[in-house]
């Protein structure tokens, strides 16, 4: 399969000089689900901001055959949908329907198309009937699902999820994973940033590990990455205390996430 995302030697520094990304290179194939794991502050979210052209680093990014630059960034944003970590940042319109239809309207679709795409997106995240609800009054789980719908309504080829399960209860997490399976079956390319290594089980085709030096240090299947306890420990994805090992082994042995699904 062809690479739909190709990142080469990407470096990013924040205006205050802090390193955001250091020599990042990786590829993702079309229809693939790539889970990017790393501890807090390893540059995972910064990577997503670079992939959507919000932040501009040094290096080369190619998405769906287009090189990310000032001229092509708008075309790339038509193909890439990003769901932010905090749904309150994504739901800025007065009602859910206004938010879900915001992207398609900006793409210049006609009203019937916008309506159909918005309804379809809301149905996919199990939020039919929420159209006229005020975003502020939704529960956190509902806000997260509405935020996903705001991106799905644009029917992007590539979906970026920034810490999608943070703050969600088990039922909402399970609902989110079901949505991911549906999107995967539709052939979408999905990139997920998380520090929850167990989320990757059953979803990830590949797992990319970010180190605290803000760069990728390993890539492989979920099994390969999870079986490398040293790698996880070194990169602050499991912790050193004895009970950490117990939890890790316990989860590993029982296939907790798998059972939950």
């Amino acid at each position: 399969m062809a690479s739909i995302i190709k990142v080469s030697n990407l470096n990013y520094r924040y205006p205050d000089g802090t390193v955001g990304l250091k020599d990042v290179s990786f590829e993702a194939e079309e229809g693939e689900t790539l889970v990017i794991i790393g501890a807090n502050g390893t540059g995972k979210s910064t990577l997503f901001m670079n992939l959507t052209g919000i932040l501009e680093g040094d290096g080369h990014i190619n998405i769906a055959g287009l090189t990310l630059n000032k001229i092509q960034v708008k075309e790339i944003r038509r193909k890439v949908g990003m769901v932010f970590q905090n749904p309150d940042d994504q739901l800025f319109c007065p009602t859910v329907m206004d938010d879900v239809s915001f992207g398609p309207l900006n793409l210049g679709w006609d009203n019937n198309e916008v309506m159909a795409a918005s309804q379809k997106a809301l149905a996919l995240v199990d939020m039919e009937g929420y159209e006229s609800r005020t975003s502020y009054h939704l529960s956190f789980g509902e806000k997260k699902r509405a935020a996903i719908a705001t991106v799905l309504s644009m029917d992007p080829k590539i979906l970026l999820f920034d810490e999608p399960t943070s703050g969600l209860d088990p039922r909402s997490t399970s609902k989110f994973i079901n949505i991911l399976y549906t999107l995967k079956s539709q052939g979408k390319t999905i990139l997920i940033v998380t520090h929850d290594i167990f989320l990757a089980q059953g979803i990830a085709d590949k797992v990319l590990v970010f180190s605290e030096e803000k760069r990728p240090v390993a890539i492989g299947s979920y099994k390969e990455i999870l079986s490398n306890y040293g790698l996880l420990l070194k990169n602050n994805l499991v912790h050193q205390h004895h009970h950490g090992q117990i939890v890790y082994e316990h989860e590993h042995r029982r296939g907790y996430i798998h059972e939950r699904l």
Partner: peptide, 10 residues
């Protein structure tokens, strides 16, 4: 962050 979310959606 809101502005970023807005420009990503066109």
């Amino acid at each position: 962050r809101i502005y970023s979310a807005m420009i990503i959606r066109g």
